[in-house]
Amino acid sequence: MTPVELSRAVLHAVRCAVDDGELSVTVPERVVVSEPGPGGCGDFATTVALQLARPAGQPPRRVAEILRGRLVGAEGVRDVVVTGAGFLNISLEDQVDPVAGLVREIREKGARYGHGDALAGQVVALRVPYEVRAEVVADAVVRLVAAQGGRATVEHGEPANLRPVPAPEDPAPLGADAAQWALLHPAPHDRPRITADHLVQREGNPLFRVRYAHARVRSVSRNAGRLGFAAEPGPSGGTKTALFTPLADHPRILAGAAIHRAPDRLARHLVTVADAVLPLLPSVLPVGEEKPSAAHRARLALAEAAGTVLAGGLSLLGIDAPEHL
């Protein structure tokens, strides 16, 4: 069971509880599952019971117990434990490795991983002023909406419903990719910085880190090929990598960026993915006389999954994902 599948299972439990009259709430569009926090247990946890408690007019732990009863019998779920104020901690069947399952899902879907149907059949009408940042943001929103099954139209004039803080100057001298990033990475209410900082190749530049991480993943894949081994999703040994959560969160981030017309959410998320994958890369290739093992193949598959997410996210932002940097 992948995180997306588990999220759907939790959502199904909520819907069934509502249909049977145990909960009187509006069923949310989606449920977030993540790694258990301090005091938690199992493979995943969700705060959905705490979120539904107030509208349901019931204590969070009571809501959690209602949902627990429906989740325990779900396919692929071994146990569900309620902790704290009402956190649902979910353990999957022993033979299911969540990291390997997630990597397989990303490999199967490729650049379309995270695309969904949150806006299926909807037409999002964007009205923007004649200003470069508004144009660039609208262009990115069009792609994000399409990735969620909808269609966005763009018109100019007033009253505008997409009006980020304008760029203080022409970003064109930065070049296409850096200009896109300079206008999309800040939140809409923040003033973008049109400076040469976006061009420097060092860790302090978020765009450099994202593009460098993708290029490093591609380099590691090429070197693995020269050593005669390829990526193969495998057991994580029960240890959750820091990369797991941002990769599992990618579908939720994409949906939120589309629904709220906020490509900055995706840009910041890509920085998180890059910062999580870079520490993994030194352990992907064998060292010295070491022979490639199942662990090396599994780490390579995980790194390549991150590279897929980085490339797909950059493409939605209209930015090139380099093979070399």
Rank of each mutant, 00 (worst) to 15 (best):
202 R>N: 03
92 L>C: 07
170 D>Y: 03
204 G>A: 00
87 F>T: 01
291 K>W: 14
144 L>R: 00
180 Q>A: 09
69 G>L: 13
12 H>I: 06
177 D>I: 06
16 C>V: 12
43 D>T: 10
91 S>P: 11
204 G>N: 07
79 D>A: 12
246 P>W: 02
50 L>A: 10
187 A>Y: 13
192 P>T: 06
157 G>Q: 00
105 E>T: 03
288 G>Y: 15
206 P>K: 00
217 V>Y: 14
265 R>E: 08
283 S>F: 14
234 G>S: 13
52 L>S: 04
15 R>F: 00
281 L>R: 04
136 V>T: 12
304 E>V: 01
298 A>M: 00
235 P>G: 03
193 R>Y: 06
197 D>I: 14
192 P>N: 09
286 P>H: 00
55 P>G: 10
257 A>C: 07
86 G>D: 12
290 E>L: 08
51 Q>M: 08
68 R>C: 08
132 V>S: 11
175 G>M: 03
115 H>L: 10
305 A>T: 03
37 G>F: 03
183 L>S: 00
24 S>E: 03
12 H>E: 07
283 S>N: 01
277 V>K: 03
209 R>E: 01
95 Q>N: 13
216 R>K: 09
203 E>Y: 01
225 G>E: 13
208 F>V: 04
276 A>D: 04
65 E>T: 15
18 V>M: 00
106 I>G: 02
286 P>M: 13
125 A>R: 15
254 L>D: 10
21 G>R: 07
231 A>I: 02
188 P>V: 12
55 P>R: 05
179 A>T: 11
90 I>S: 04
268 R>I: 00
26 T>R: 08
67 L>D: 00
143 R>Y: 10
171 P>H: 12
85 A>V: 06
72 V>S: 07
96 V>K: 02
133 R>T: 02
33 V>F: 15
175 G>E: 01
276 A>R: 07
222 R>W: 06
79 D>G: 13
123 V>C: 12
217 V>G: 09
35 E>Y: 11
233 P>K: 14
106 I>F: 06
33 V>R: 02
55 P>A: 06
186 P>I: 04
28 P>E: 11
304 E>L: 04
94 D>M: 14
323 E>M: 03
258 A>T: 12
239 T>D: 02
37 G>R: 04
128 V>I: 15
100 A>L: 14
212 Y>N: 07
43 D>H: 07
253 I>S: 06
199 L>S: 09
93 E>D: 11
243 L>W: 09
285 L>N: 06
135 E>H: 07
112 R>I: 07
99 V>D: 06
148 Q>K: 10
251 P>R: 03
66 I>C: 06
214 H>G: 03
317 L>Y: 05
23 L>S: 05
6 L>R: 10
222 R>H: 02
311 A>Y: 01
279 P>E: 02
55 P>E: 01
282 P>W: 12
36 P>D: 05
178 A>P: 10
226 R>K: 13
214 H>S: 00
225 G>N: 09
59 P>H: 08
130 Y>E: 14
118 A>P: 09
305 A>N: 06
25 V>T: 10
69 G>D: 14
74 A>T: 14
151 R>S: 12
230 A>W: 07
52 L>N: 01
310 L>A: 05
135 E>M: 08
61 R>Y: 08
157 G>M: 05
269 H>E: 03
239 T>E: 09
278 L>M: 08
230 A>V: 13
249 D>Y: 03
